[in-house]
Amino acid sequence: MKKDIVQLVIAFFTLVFGGAAEELAPKTLGVGLPVLLSAAVYFARRRTPLVGMLFAVAAGAAEDALSGLPYALSVSYFAAVAGLMRGFKLSVGFAVPAYCLYQVWLWIWLGQSLVGGVFLRMLMALPVGVAVLAATHAALYWIDRKAAVDEK
């Protein structure tokens, strides 16, 4: 029970601070820091399937709300990424191509109104994705270790 509450608190603060970090970070060619997607990937790997999927949906909903995107655009993508991670037992590095393909997903739905060209965005998403993935995973892993809730 105590472990569940600790997990819930970690998930909650990850959403709050992840969302705030995404908002405050400068955006190059429209590409921001994918903290929520990286956290969703981390939770998909290191939590039970249900918790991982619930966090992916919550993170997607937060992303949609913060980005002013149509309902469920990011929710469906984040949930699909979390599902693929679990189903095919993919490594956390999958977050990087997932973030690049997220630009294509946005372009499919938003078309010409998407800021910046889709190829430039994909190119930019590579280094940004790697850096944010590393930082997010290091931070969440450290928190998990300190809180003793790591399930792996």
Partner: peptide
Amino acid sequence: VLSEGGGAAGARRSIR
């Protein structure tokens, strides 16, 4: 002005 806004997607040019 709080931030550039737009989350990680940054799909639109906006501020919060």
